[in-house]
Write a protein that binds this DNA or RNA. Sequence first.
DNA 1: TTGTAGGCGTTATCAA
DNA 2: TTGATAACGCCTACAA
Lengths: 336, 336
Amino acid sequence: MTETTSPPTLEMVAAVAGVSRSTVSRVVNESPKVTPEAVAAVNAAISKLGYVPNRVARSLASRRTFSIALVIPETTARFFADPFFASVVQGAAFHLAKTEYTLTLLISSETDPEKTRRYLQGGNVDGALILSHHTDDRSYSELAGRLPVVFGGRPMSQEGEDAYVVDADNRAAAEQATRHLIGRGRTRIAHIAGRPNMGASVDRLDGWRRALNAAGLASDLVEGGDFTPHGGADAMRRLLERDPGLDAVFAASDQMASGALAVLKERGLRVPADVAVVGFDNNDFARSSTPPLTTVEQPPTAQGAKMAEVLVRLIEGEEVEHFTLLETRLIVRESS
Amino acid sequence: MTETTSPPTLEMVAAVAGVSRSTVSRVVNESPKVTPEAVAAVNAAISKLGYVPNRVARSLASRRTFSIALVIPETTARFFADPFFASVVQGAAFHLAKTEYTLTLLISSETDPEKTRRYLQGGNVDGALILSHHTDDRSYSELAGRLPVVFGGRPMSQEGEDAYVVDADNRAAAEQATRHLIGRGRTRIAHIAGRPNMGASVDRLDGWRRALNAAGLASDLVEGGDFTPHGGADAMRRLLERDPGLDAVFAASDQMASGALAVLKERGLRVPADVAVVGFDNNDFARSSTPPLTTVEQPPTAQGAKMAEVLVRLIEGEEVEHFTLLETRLIVRESS
DNA sequence: TTGTAGGCGTTATCAA
DNA sequence: TTGATAACGCCTACAA
């Protein structure tokens, strides 16, 4: 049985109820200006026929789809391997469940970014949530002008004022992490920065510097990594060359911190006795390194929910702030 | 800048290209019957205007959406906690990437099954993939008559001939697992069955029985569990009461097997020395139990891919087999 | 090969 | 409050 019988239309409901299509439409859309009798007749007809509004036709006429896309610019495999994504999706889905919007997950496999773009621009959705975690992928930045779009994760810093962004409060988090180090009595606190073209890197560097300046400490010990353990290790070596007596390192990612940890061990420096280390992300690298890393936890679920909220408000035409900063939490472990 | 400028239409392209809308439509849909000049003119106009077809309008007119839904009747949290789901999605997405179809993930939170149903019946998708893992949820079975639907996971056995199902070959897998036990020299092999109202349970019980019968062994030692560790423990107790000398147990799920393991340890029986244990699923319960469980691995990625393939063929009007059985793999660990 | 015209199922705009 | 009637953007016979 594949006989998918063609579904009843609004017009058929109108016929059965003995009213016009307009009236049926009004009832379906809960317009207040309909007599109770008409409402009753229409509802009776609806349940008699098992009528379900055709959302496609509705979309075409009203120019609204009530569905929004969550675009994940990663391969499916990587997406599911990363708990960060899962949590963001969860947060978004949870928020959207309270609204009339439906979430469509678009996993844009690298093979066909075009398909995704056509889908997004083709009027299928009222807006899009775009995750750009650990990536400076700007392939979707142009979309922002054609469709309400909210970026999440760690987007470009530049990219103009027209973008809406929900992100962790990197600056405040970095400041807090650095203050934590200062509070532990450290005075030569170095920083391993992320890629300079990413907003997150800049903000974290900035937060680190602020905390040091506020404490009257020097903020000269910076070396750049690339968010990988290897990059972190290289940066650590350069830092030790510049100042063998440094007593703390704040890395802009757990992966870089773990690279730094390896170098410190290789040099016979004890963590945290000789050098305290703090990372950023609170991912598996932080939990499973030796010693476990003190790090900054980002709230992915909250981020997903907030992204959805911002997008919905945007779609509904509300004034929305371009930047929404999420609070982070310092998780103190044995490395500091 | 939220000025979402209204996008160019097919009609505008026609005007610029100096042809009729039909011709533009033909070019867009790659109809062979268009002169090269026309094609060139239209394509020029398209890229000049940045035209992207409105899929909603196209859907309304053609009654095709080229998108299919993957319905997950679980909460978002549970969905992401279960690697089984993730893999199925991955498989489906991977297969669909090769087609012109788009995958829409519908996480039907238990709060609003109605929203999901309306979405599915509202003409938003050409078909649906429905996962009913560990669940005898029949809330979507009615959909099958109104929309091409493929069920996956462990669906009802009954439910009529009109359903399309892709599932692991439970019977063969159970048979193989039991033969493995027989091969290890076991002769009193018990079975802890799953809920009797689930097709998977019935098939596994059947496979177990077949293997025993073929070997000339008795197949009387069956007790039912409910797919939980607790249920498995209770069943194990009953089995030991009935035959304290049993030397092997095949459980219809890893969770039940882990419950059985606990009871065996409690009774001072060694695994596998005294009693060999085999589970089903190859999930975390199997890997992290003591000893690690020999179990049956189901191929969730393959299942997702196969489900997508079957659905697409169904949508395209091909003849498709109602049941597709996936091969499984026995993973031998220390419990047997 | 190309164009014309009608229709897909709703919503929206006016009159009535 | 209700009902014609015209969009919405595209597809598709059918005709030319």
